[in-house]
Design a binder for these strands. Structure first.
Lengths: 104, 104
DNA sequence: CCAACACATAAGCGGATACTTATGTGATTC
DNA sequence: GAATCACATAAGTATCCGCTTATGTGTTGG
């Protein structure tokens, strides 16, 4: 149940911070790590969780592994949210219209 | 950090099932419970988590507590997703397919 | 009143989770 | 080819989570 993995992955503030940083541009683990008070194994484990949730994908480049946002995970959340579209509040009306545009 | 609460709340399949059932219409705890193999205290605890995440709100009616979807929680997720909307477009196709699946 | 009902809270338990230190694997550079 | 670097994996630990049973709180109706 990958839907579960996405929500669980994002249910941790450290992983959301990592994801947000990655959304600014692809980078390797060391680059991700600096500025963050997190050990190398911890980062590696978080990346593994994010990858399983399809929020992040990776590509090996020499001795580096470059991580980048995988849109698939976001699409999973969007798909889940679609089921409850009728409850979306007026404040996100613009967002709803945007999805409508994308839908056709 | 309420954003954390939303993702954590949805990172449990039982709670997503409860939420989905509630999305079909407001109801009390006992009504929620039947058809689900879940004890009364467990349900009460789940409702507490969902309420804290602003995914559900409640209203006491006599000796019943009627629960209903609180759009605020969904808005929080949408708000979070919006930060990464530049990653959405490539996935419209997947979203459409997901919608198609859900339609049947 | 009090019995029945709807729900919340307390306490305890097993498994999951996020971290740590130590070590392994693979690639690069000198 | 040895040292170094980037990352993964192993193993241990403390905390968190979701469940259970038992009990408490508040409401309704006989």
């Amino acid at each position: 149940m990958i839907e579960n993995d996405v929500f669980k992955a994002l249910g941790d503030p450290t992983r959301r911070a990592i994801f947000e940083k990655l959304a600014g541009g692809a980078m390797n683990g060391s680059a991700l790590r600096d500025g963050m008070a997190i050990s190398q194994p911890a980062m590696s484990q978080h990346m593994s969780v994010l990858r399983a949730a399809r929020l992040v994908r990776e590509e090996r480049q020499g001795r580096f592994v470059v991580y980048e946002v995988d849109p698939e995970g976001l699409a999973l959340i969007l798909g889940w949210l679609q089921k409850y579209r009728s409850y979306w509040p007026g404040r996100v009306e613009a967002l709803r219209n945007m999805l409508k545009d994308m839908d056709q």
